[in-house]
């Protein structure tokens, strides 16, 4: 919690939209909103009824994250293997 407060105070001490956000140590968390937006817009386009969208978008969100984590793990394994 103190880390979150420190981050928020850092964010507002900078000029928003002029200086970049100080998220150098948390950059990987920025994957989540990007994947969420892609899942929501993609499923809004694909689904016939908007009632299906929340469930379908949640499933797609999880699938994308799992595949990206698996891909990252596989690439990390490959790099470790090549370094041996």
């Amino acid at each position: 919690m103190p880390a979150m407060v420190a981050l928020l105070s850092q964010v507002w001490s900078r000029a928003p939209f002029v200086a970049p956000l100080p998220v150098w140590n948390y950059w990987y968390l920025l994957l989540l909103p990007l994947v969420a937006a892609i899942a929501v817009v993609y499923k809004s386009i694909r689904c016939g009824s908007m009632r299906q969208v929340p469930r379908e978008a949640a499933i797609l969100f999880v699938v994308i994250l799992v595949v990206m984590v698996l891909a990252a793990g596989a690439l990390a394994g490959l790099v470790t293997l090549l370094e041996m």
Partner: peptide, 18 residues
């Protein structure tokens, strides 16, 4: 849904990178 998502994503990009 589409409009708010697209504009939020765009503004988030400007906020993150300037």
């Amino acid at each position: 849904t589409v409009g708010i998502s697209v504009l939020t994503l765009f503004l988030a990009g400007l906020l993150i990178g300037g």
